[in-house]
Nucleic acid binder design. Structure first.
Lengths: 271, 271
DNA sequence: CAGTGGTCTAGACCACACT
DNA sequence: GTGTGGTCTAGACCACTGC
């Protein structure tokens, strides 16, 4: 039951019926860069995700339904969904369905936080105390504008917060957000919200963070930073600059963190 | 042509013929944890890799050959190989074949080195100058033994090296290796080898590093370290402790690096 | 029990690389 | 052209979840 009509029979490169000719008809043409059917399906599903047809946490149609909708076999839908699940955009649950991934679930909270205590316990279960130190409307500096793909002077929201673990201040973060998508965000809203910030972004602003890049350095704090983190200005700290992206690689957050690494470490897995 | 006979018809859970009953016969039993056929195939291929039946850089048999050898369909072999390729143990090349991954290839050299210069150029292409500062036989400290899954006092090789980029010292590394698998490794051999250390480990000792874990901290150098890196003792540095693993998660290297992050940064991608 | 994702098969055909 | 991996289909059956 294709509730939503297709914009076109997928693309000119693929007839919509069984025994697809795929790109066979294009031999000799100006190399339209062969795109497999399942990639096209993947792009269509991604579009539906971005436009909010299925919201974070919701179930998407079954593989058979999607296959009918897109007029392809279930196996082709499966391959598309497999890749989206591998990218953490969807979550498959055998026997239940396929769901839009969300930062609000217990076991994937703080997915982007790689700081671990030296003793084995996980961060994210033991909740950190958070102090918000303001949330101001600013004009983007050249640097912030570049990170967020804005123009210098565009309005941005800037917030600062301090995270403590068992009363020890460990993380000091400055956060910049484009003002447009986050219109209405206030320090109060941030301070009162329980749970990961990215979950708030999803539920209140429809912005889902999909991936992030981090640049890590060792630095010394200035006096203000040192005071907030309760260390001396000679204490080495981890500087973690993160750019978080939503669908289609659109940057939606710049975050500059200072991590104390006495008692914690930044964990990374290399493959 | 199954040159190597199967140890058994895969497992007791799967008859070897078409229309596999898989685990259907086991309903009601003490939950032998259902293992799909392709996982079993994956384990068999992994075994062949570990035992060196196919060496790094070599081509493995085609999917049809493997399917015949293991008496499963090509699609099942494909899924097993897909996962091994996703884990970077194999590399698929359309039209050519499937190859055992290696650290010796140009485009994957320094796969585990996440340090990048502030200007866009890649590390790994522009060759670093390397100074080896000794390679000694030692007895494992408790800490080293734990990291390498040895016993305290077991023989290990320890080496130290300094990496420069355009004449600036940037990385100081201490490396510990279990003496057994690396018997015969000398400072000369290390110093004279061109190319990544992990490529040498593959070709000379048959040890292929498959993945690694890193723990990152911000630290200050001691006076010796500061001197080698040409910084003051007050300069914050990145401490990167890496444990590298070969097949079956066997730890084979402990590496403690100090990175200067003025001019470079540690890059990480979060998904 | 019905519905979902997960596995497996068999066969056809396409894209790519080498010879 | 031949052989390799890559895509797509169609159908069967299994495993898991929740009604």
């Amino acid at each position: 039951m294709p509730a939503t009509a297709l914009p076109a029979p997928l693309t000119a490169t693929t007839p919509g019926a069984a025994s697809h000719a795929v790109n066979g008809a294009l031999r000799g043409m100006a190399a339209p860069a062969f795109s497999p059917l399942y990639q096209q399906i993947k792009a269509l599903i991604l579009g539906s995700l971005q436009q909010g047809e299925w919201k974070p946490g919701e179930m998407i149609p079954s593989e058979f339904e999607l296959a009918a909708r897109y007029k392809v076999s279930q196996g082709t839908v499966r391959k598309a969904v497999d890749e989206l699940a591998a990218d953490n955009l969807l979550v498959r649950r055998q026997g239940r369905g396929t769901f839009v991934a969300t930062h609000a679930e217990q076991h994937v909270r703080y997915r982007f936080l790689r700081l671990q205590p030296d003793n084995g316990t996980m961060i994210g279960e033991g909740p950190a105390e958070r102090d918000f130190i303001g949330c101001k409307r600013q004009r983007a500096s050249a640097e912030v504008a570049r990170a967020l793909a804005l123009r210098t002077g565009d309005p941005v929201l800037q917030a600062r917060r301090l995270l403590r673990f068992s009363d020890v201040p460990v993380i000091l973060e400055d956060i910049w957000l484009p003002a447009g998508p986050f219109k209405g965000l206030t320090a109060e809203r941030l301070a009162q919200y329980r749970g990961p910030m990215y979950a708030l972004f999803e539920s209140e602003f429809g912005v889902r963070m999909v991936r992030a890049d981090e640049k890590i350095r060792a630095v010394l704090p200035d006096t203000g930073q040192a005071k907030l983190l309760a260390v001396t200005s000679a204490a080495p700290l981890l500087s973690v600059e993160r750019i978080a992206y939503t669908y289609h690689d659109a940057p939606m957050e710049l975050r500059r963190g200072l991590y104390r690494t006495d008692g914690h470490y930044y964990r990374n897995e290399l493959n």
